[in-house]
Amino acid sequence: MDAAGKEILAGNDRAAARLMRDLDDEIPAAIRTLKALYRHTGRAYILGVTGSPGAGKSTLVNRITTHLRKRGKSVGIVAIDPTSPFSGGAILGDRIRMQQHALDEGVFIKSLATRGHLGGLSRSTIDIVNVMDAMGKDVILIETVGVGQDEVEIVKVAHTNLVLVVPGLGDDIQAIKAGILEIADIFVVNKSDRDGADKAKREIETMVSMGDFKEGEWKPPVLSAVAATDKGTVELLEAVDRHQEYIYREGNLSRYRREKARVELVEILKTRLIEKAVSDLDACGLLEPLLADMAKKRKDPYTISEKVVDHSFAFHLLNGGKPGSVKGKGKRR
């Protein structure tokens, strides 16, 4: 364990903040620290909050945090906002609604930009959740970007997924019929003091009731809330408690853990394998000629990819898993 890792385990928030930034920025040394912290993770309860833009996610996260603090739980919040596809910049504004926790040492808030990652989270989200977990946060809230229909990555990361819906958006109900409907562990009709709230609630209840639930299987409840005035938050947390009991039942928890492990591994492999393939091709001087051939339609990307995948990776694995450091600089470990 390096110095940074030790400091984080000892409760140094500043060291944790720096590691989170380094992970988001893909600094290699940060991965080393995270490797050592990894076995200290797995204790936190992870709660995902998703829904369309303006549904009230930040406001609800703020309320939930207040109630969790009253219960004496420490809280980590990962709030994700979109990166501008044009400039690469972002405005991360989720903290605005969470200001009342700004001076509470039991609450750690990290804002992240998607940086081009799809699925409602940033590439670094799982890493940063792991750091908060190692910090000893009891509950970690993940607020996704405002999502449409298909951004359901959160489902694999969180123990309990809250899906927020607001009344008055007929199309919104349409939107949740696929994708998001299926990931909700708990539905929240937020802004339920508005016209159409009952209708929205009934429509979701109807959809849920059409689902095929086996004996003892979790059936997502549909709750009403007005996050702005804290109405419904207590009932919501009680539903979360019930879901937690369900998740912690033997079988469910190990299934969740395996599924999360799979996502962690696949996500990391995806990034690493692509980087490695491209840089190896480039280091061998193959990349540019291949691209030129493709541009002239002499070669196709499908064949090239097949060759890279079949030969390159299998080859390295058969050679005892030594990564082919093609560059002159040998890797020191």
């Binding site: 690469g88 991360l92 903290r95 200001q99 700004a102």
Partner: peptide, 15 residues
Amino acid sequence: LRDAGVEVIYTGLHQ
């Protein structure tokens, strides 16, 4: 600043 490629953490009023 966002348009200049910066990640801006906007914390709002009354800080």
